[in-house]
Amino acid sequence: CCDFDLYKESRGLGDPEILARETVFSVSEVEALYELFKKISSAVIDDGLINKEEFQLALFKTNKKESLFADRVFDLFDTKHNGILGFEEFARALSVFHPNAPVDDKIEFSFQLYDLKHQGFIERQEVKQMVVATLAESGMNLSDDVIESIIDKTFEEADTKHDGKIDKEKWRILVLRHPSLLKNVTLQYLKDITTTFPSFVFHSQVAD
């Protein structure tokens, strides 16, 4: 009944030229990114795939930390929904984080990130859950009254239709007014990926 191949993760670098065509990365950058991928994917089990534990380890340098957002980011990268990341998923997702990636892609990614229940809108209860998680993860303490007033103010500004929801259109207006909200969807490091991982030249498939 099902096409199992759809869920099978392809291992290895694959065809860097196809990935380069379909992402903002050049062929060399795809190859350099693969060096990073190999490093992360071999941290726990050297199987050429990144599992959630390896992703957490790379992010926090510990696998002990519980993080709502690390889980969310991993799940968004994991487009095949099989709990592991192949290189292609990793490269395609990180392409959104490139400084030269279209801003619309960044808006879409950040919206999906915060749309915890995949409802097509962000509701108050989700915002509260994320604020509480952020505070807990960073060891900050704010009273419930203060948290509620932060959320009140946010909805006052973002919820222009007063229906208690921040849909994609409202999200777009909000982030265009506050570009800093997209800051964490841009990684300057990706511009220098070939100099950060110069060893890619030893494995390069393309002649320069």
């Binding site: 992360i40 992010l59 993080s67 957002f69 604020v131 952020t134 103010k153 990684l187 300057q188």
Partner: peptide
């Protein structure tokens, strides 16, 4: 002044959203 802060500004400071640490050696 946390009260004047946008909730999403606060959320975006979360360590779990800071992918730059993926690149640290």
């Amino acid at each position: 002044k946390p009260v004047t802060m946008n909730a999403f500004e606060l959320i975006s400071t979360s360590q779990g959203l800071n992918l730059s640490s993926l690149f640290e050696k």
